[in-house]
């Protein structure tokens, strides 16, 4: 196994503490076919499956890294990219579109410096665009961390989002 190259992820050293893995790996030590529970636990700890973590799991369990990636990309539960603590989904379906969703999207983007689909550098927010949540009567709308915001307006939704920790 090749050595982990820290340049691959500039945040690696600050944010990913591989110490947490020890406990998980100890718990499943010697268990047959424990890859999936190990990945599930690792994702629970780190919020997603960073490359460093997968490499460390591979090194310690001697499960080839390729196999881990094959498994991690197969199951919908696993995420390979870090997302924000707050997931903002703004609807840009037809009804929301004509009612001004693009303005809100633009305002959110400007306020937090994110592109649709992107995550802020401090991993606070992830902005996603969705197409029709089936509540056109409430257009334009957004769903923030499962909470529905109806009739959103650019300034108000930004203020609302700023209030989140």
């Amino acid at each position: 196994m090749r050595k982990n190259n820290p340049r691959d992820n500039p945040f690696a050293e600050e944010t990913i503490d591989l110490k947490h893995l020890e406990k998980i790996l100890d718990e499943f030590k010697g268990q047959k076919g424990a890859i999936i529970p190990v990945l599930q636990r690792a994702q629970y700890v780190y919020g997603y499956l960073p490359k460093e973590v997968l490499q460390a799991i591979s090194r310690k369990t001697r499960v080839p890294l390729t196999r881990l990636y094959g498994v991690a990309t197969f199951y919908a539960q696993f995420r390979l990219a870090r997302r924000g603590r707050h997931i903002i989904r703004v609807c840009d379906g037809t009804a929301c579109h004509v009612r001004g969703a693009p303005q809100s999207i633009e305002a959110i983007g400007k306020a937090f410096q994110i592109e649709p689909g992107g995550t802020t550098p401090d991993y606070k927010y992830t902005l996603e665009i969705v197409y029709c949540i089936g509540s056109c009567g409430l257009a334009p709308m957004a769903v923030v961390n499962e909470k529905v915001h109806a009739n959103i307006e650019p300034d108000k939704i930004v203020d609302e989002l700023k209030k989140l920790d």
Partner: peptide, 20 residues
């Protein structure tokens, strides 16, 4: 060595190596 596996699934499945 298991350097090759299939990554992702369905129509988007493709062969990949290591950490993709």
């Amino acid at each position: 060595v298991e350097a090759i596996s299939v990554f992702y699934r369905g129509f988007n499945a493709h062969i990949g190596f290591g950490a993709d």
